[in-house]
């Protein structure tokens, strides 16, 4: 489905975001990306959505090399990849239904896109996507009337409505309370599974990632720190990953796990923040 081979990327301001990253996933696979802020999670996802061009290495998306494609072919490839953003960039005056329907602009002909601005052409489809996220009643509300968490779910609904083969989500539940966050992830996971689509989600909350995803990729300093099944992720790995962020492991629930007080001591095998109730 996608393959990154020794990918490097340096931003225009000279900041090195990714160093020699190698990562691959097959069709229908689901993985979570975790790591401290600034580790390169967002950059990684932007590479996967063919929004950023890698500085070095080989990138294959949906069995093609996106940056060797002509403009029209690249556009069609992008329409098969969908992204849910942490703060969805939706115009405040746009209504939720229009924002959701915009997910299919890549496959709609131009006249349909224009006509849908005058009268929404797929109300049932947009309603279904929003209803899955418990937002059906906000269907005709303007985006500037929605809270941050509701906006995030509108962004997820757009992704659901787009039905892409590669689903990417950049911290899609960061503004939601624990229950809603879990439910929203469950919807994404169920949708990806039903359509056999590949799902890559970056998450700040370690416990959610471990509870919901079979495969966990830890990113630190622009490198893959580990890439293994969730069952094989132990606390030592996690503490290494988040070493720069102090003694707390970021979790969904506010009471993060505190590490041992005595520095240098071998951490006791504390219970990992794991849930078994995800999907």
């Amino acid at each position: 489905m996608f393959r990154l081979d020794a990918i490097s990327l340096t931003h225009a301001n000279g900041h090195v975001a990714l160093r020699e990253v190698t990562l691959a996933a097959g069709r229908g696979e689901q993985l979570a990306i975790i790591g401290p802020s600034g580790a390169g999670k967002t950059t990684l996802l932007r590479l996967l959505s063919a929004a950023l061009r890698p500085g070095g290495g080989e990138l294959t998306l949906l069995d093609t090399t996106p940056w060797s494609l002509a403009a029209e072919a690249l556009r069609q490839l992008r329409s098969r990849i969908g992204v849910a953003h942490q703060t969805p960039p939706l115009p405040g005056r746009q209504r939720a239904i229009t924002a959701v329907l915009a997910g299919r602009l890549g496959v709609w002909p131009w006249w349909k896109a224009l006509a849908s601005l005058a009268y929404p052409l797929d109300i049932a489809g947009a309603r279904q996507a929003l209803a899955a996220l418990d937002l059906a009643e906000r269907l005709f509300d303007r985006c500037d009337r929605l809270s941050g968490g509701q906006l995030q779910r509108v962004g997820v609904a757009r992704l659901l409505y787009q039905k892409p083969q590669l689903m990417l989500a950049d911290e899609p539940v960061s503004s939601l309370d624990p229950t809603l966050a879990l439910q929203t992830l469950q919807v994404l996971i169920a949708d990806a599974r039903a359509r056999n689509a590949t799902l890559v989600v970056s998450l700040h909350a370690v416990d959610l990632a471990l509870a919901c995803f079979p495969r966990i990729v830890g990113v630190r300093d622009g490198r893959i720190a580990f890439d293994r099944p969730a069952a094989k992720v132990d606390e030592i790995l996690l503490r290494d990953l988040y070493a720069a962020e102090g003694r707390q492991l970021p979790t969904q629930d506010k009471q993060s796990l505190a590490t041992e007080d005595t520095p240098g001591a071998i951490p006791a095998p504390a219970p990992l923040p794991r849930r078994n109730n995800c999907a």
Binding site: A51, S79, V83, Q94, T98, P164
Partner: peptide, 21 residues
Amino acid sequence: NALIESGSPPFAAFCYGTLPE
């Protein structure tokens, strides 16, 4: 840009992304 990155043609992205603002 978000629309362009999900494969929308530039004109549709303008109508759905820039125009409402």
